[in-house]
């Protein structure tokens, strides 16, 4: 027994010595990818990004001939996973799937373990879903956004709007609406968009600034009434819903969006190749139908995305500051 253990120890020791001496071989862009690629998704399975990240990963797997794995690292509104991804190897085998949340986070969290603009390099915004103003028709009589604002002004603090949680784009879209229209609405946070929709349908809350993806089907079913789309253009998913400008609140634009970032320092060839592959994947038929069903559009890529991220951080920051939204 004793000798066995000693032999084992000796073996371990020599193994240790041998691999310490040898350095890792550098990554070559020519052969990339020669092993599976990981997309760090900072939300739990079944959460917001999954509906876009999973189909995209499946399409990329087909194109690249290497599996693209989604690594769900949920927690702390997506900031936990972002912090982990920021420290990942920059060898081109780890990418980060971020969202609008990450441009809100810098202004509502006291401290973050990463810097979205420094630790990551934007590749592409893969999906943008506009928010839509929806009301429960049994609770709110308003037939148009104008009527809603009139009612809200006549009854300050009476109307309540639900959100998917403190500091989510649902919440801040509501705060943006309040600031633009000078109305007073009561915020009711939920643990996610699902429970919120449940209470909106049941009349526990009066209205919401919901993502079009989860609202579209309820709108079609006639359970909730859409008053305006928080976007510049109408959406084919709900073609007869006016844009915010058409409904009289110009500048009320808010989208839930999802994007792919590379880890800062990833070789340029690999980033370019990934950008090209994603662009190709987004043109695939299977993806088109998924995106259309959720009213999603493809967003800016590369340098445009960097500028977009910058403006988002600024805009959300102003709203969060104005409404004093904080997570401590």
């Amino acid at each position: 027994m004793q000798t066995n253990r000693r032999a084992l120890l000796a073996l371990c020791g020599s193994a240790l010595a041998s691999f310490v001496a040898i350095s890792t071989s550098p990554v070559t862009a020519q052969t990339w990818p020669d092993k599976p690629i990981t997309f760090v998704n900072p939300f739990a399975a079944g959460g917001g990004t999954d509906a876009f990240a999973r189909p995209l990963a499946a399409e990329l797997t087909k194109q690249l001939g290497q599996s693209v794995i989604i690594d769900n690292k949920g927690g702390a509104g997506g900031t936990l996973g972002a912090g982990v991804a920021a420290r990942a190897a920059k060898d081109g085998y780890t990418f980060f799937v971020g969202a609008v949340h990450h441009t809100i986070a810098p202004s509502i969290y006291a401290k973050l373990t990463y810097d979205l603009e420094k630790d990551f390099e934007p590749i592409a915004v893969v999906a943008m879903v506009p928010h839509v103003v929806v009301v429960n028709p049994a609770k709110v009589q308003a037939k148009s956004l104008k009527e809603l604002i009139e009612f809200a002004k006549a009854n300050p603090g009476k109307l309540s709007f639900g959100s998917a949680g403190n500091g989510t784009s649902h919440h801040l879209a509501g705060e943006m609406f309040k600031a633009l229209t000078k109305t007073d609405l009561q915020h009711v946070p939920y643990k996610g968009a699902g429970p919120m929709m449940q209470d909106l349908l049941g009349g526990q809350i009066d209205m919401a600034f919901d993502g079009l993806g989860s609202s579209a089907s309820q709108i079609k079913g006639g359970k909730i009434v859409p008053l305006a789309l928080a976007a510049k253009e109408r959406s084919s998913a709900v073609a007869d819903v006016p844009t915010s400008a058409e409904a009289g609140v110009a500048g009320f634009e808010a989208s839930a969006w999802y994007g792919v970032w590379a880890i800062a320092g990833t070789p340029k060839e690999i980033k370019d190749k990934m950008a090209a592959e994603i662009a190709k994947a987004l043109k695939a038929e299977s993806i088109g139908s998924v995106w259309a069903a959720q009213g999603a559009k493809i967003g800016p890529v590369g340098a445009d995305m960097a500028a977009f991220v910058k403006s988002e951080i600024e805009n959300w920051g102003k709203i969060a500051k104005g409404a004093n939204v904080k997570i401590e």
């Binding site: 193994a15 041998s18 691999f19 040898i22 890792t24 071989s25 599996s67 690594d71």
Partner: peptide
């Protein structure tokens, strides 16, 4: 099941090279 856990981690990767 494809769980994203490395069979051989970064500490031992060089050993694989050997």
């Amino acid at each position: 099941l494809g769980l994203p856990i490395p069979l051989v981690g970064p500490w031992l990767q060089p050993l694989l090279g050997v």
